[in-house]
């Protein structure tokens, strides 16, 4: 049977008495839960001007986010263009596929009298058909 999860935390009374805004502290500890084990007191002691360091790291983070945002936007546009071109080639490729029949008929009627490399043409059609009608290779 599944045990019911408790809805409260047991907090040392001394701690609770010293902080008016317990909700804020608990909120923060939940947010930073993954980092609770990373406390390094030596590092903490040395960081006298933590706010300056924090401002610097926030600024760097903001810059990296901007770069990332622009790159994602660029990728989005290029990906959209790629889809458009792929669809255009797929539609054009369907028409090409319909010409295979004509190619076969021409070969049976005129054969080598016609200056056309039937096999090379069929190979090209197969290549485009495989690429645009049976497979989308940039997913």
């Amino acid at each position: 049977m599944k045990r019911k999860t408790k809805n409260y935390l047991l907090i040392p009374d001394k701690f609770a008495q010293n902080f008016d805004d317990l909700e804020f502290i608990i909120d923060e500890l939940i947010v930073y839960f993954n980092f609770l084990n990373e406390i390094d007191f030596e590092e903490l002691k040395q960081m006298n001007s933590l706010h300056d360091s924090l401002d610097k790291i926030r600024e760097e983070f903001s810059n990296i986010c901007q770069v990332y945002g622009k790159l994602r936007q660029e990728y989005g546009v290029i990906y959209f263009q790629g889809n458009e071109l792929f669809t255009r080639n797929t539609v054009t490729g369907i028409k090409l596929g319909l010409l295979v029949g004509k190619l076969e008929r021409a070969k049976s009627i005129w054969g080598s009298d016609l200056s056309l490399d039937y096999e090379a043409a069929k190979e090209l059609i197969n290549h485009f058909t495989t690429r645009y009608l049976f497979k989308k290779d940039d997913e």
């Binding site: 923060e28 947010v31 930073y32 993954n34 980092f35 609770l36 990373e38 406390i39 590092e43 903490l44 960081m47 933590l50 706010h51 360091s53 924090l54 790291i57 926030r58 760097e60 983070f61 990296i64 986010c65 770069v67 990332y68 790159l71």
Partner: peptide, 22 residues
């Protein structure tokens, strides 16, 4: 100071993820 320290750790962690994604 402690919460600022955690905040720095978290930003650092996220920066690394974003750097990889870049």
């Amino acid at each position: 100071k402690l919460l600022s320290f955690f905040n720095m750790k978290m930003i650092d962690f996220r920066s690394k993820i974003i750097a990889d994604d870049i």
